[in-house]
């Protein structure tokens, strides 16, 4: 084996190292090889091997081997087990004696979904607060829904975004708050934080 562990490259018996042969592959293939390239048997053999490696590298790149189908499920159940069950619960309106509460995450998901339905808009960050909780009235008002203060950031499509779309976002988010969550949208702060090209 033409290996000198002290040098970075691997020397062929002819004195060139493999990396040089590799870098010259394209030139030689294009007919721009020098005298040594064209006559040296060591370089010729190395080129054949390097070409074989390049071909098989292409196979690796094109490889579409997937993990077992249940892996996504395994990952996601581990993730869901960690989803924080925090104190960010909002009371929902109910006439029954029991409490109904919804997490701020769930409210955010519903509102993001409503914003997404507007063409050229993608909802990103969504922060939700209940005004009544803020107003230090945590126990009261189980019979009326939460009064939401929402901060929503969106990315808009470079091609299809029009200013009017933000009004539509406002409308749909407000509608979703009422019809889906049974809450009033007191205030919505919209932030266009990015554009995306489709």
């Amino acid at each position: 084996m033409a290996v000198n562990p002290e040098t970075q490259g691997y020397l062929l018996p002819c004195g060139r190292d493999v990396e040089t042969v590799w870098e010259r592959l394209a030139d030689v293939a294009a007919g721009r090889g020098d005298e040594h390239d064209l006559t040296c048997p060591d370089c010729r053999d190395a080129r054949a091997s390097l070409n074989a490696l390049r071909d098989v590298t292409g196979e690796l790149v094109a490889d579409t081997t997937e993990p077992a189908p249940h892996l996504t499920g395994r990952i996601m159940s581990a993730v869901r087990a960690e989803v924080r069950r925090r104190h960010d619960m909002l009371p929902l309106p109910t006439t029954e004696p029991g409490l109904v509460r919804i997490s701020e995450h769930a409210v955010a998901a519903v509102l993001r979904f409503a914003a997404d339905s507007v063409a050229g808009v993608r909802a990103r960050r969504c922060r939700v607060h209940d005004l009544r909780v803020r107003a230090a009235d945590p126990g009261g008002g189980e019979e009326s829904g939460p009064v939401l203060v929402v901060e929503l950031s969106v990315a808009v499509s470079y091609q299809s975004f029009a200013w009017r779309a933000l009004d539509l976002v406002r409308e749909r988010v407000a509608a979703a708050a009422v019809t889906r969550i049974g809450s009033e949208l007191h205030r919505l702060d919209l932030i266009v934080e990015d554009v995306y090209g489709a």
Partner: peptide, 23 residues
């Protein structure tokens, strides 16, 4: 980027999409 921002916000579905995309 949208998916990452949502996932950081606690959106599990957005994260699942990232998992499907890159696993």
């Amino acid at each position: 980027t949208t998916l990452v921002v949502r996932a950081r916000d606690g959106d599990v579905r957005a994260y699942e999409q990232l998992v499907r995309r890159y696993q």
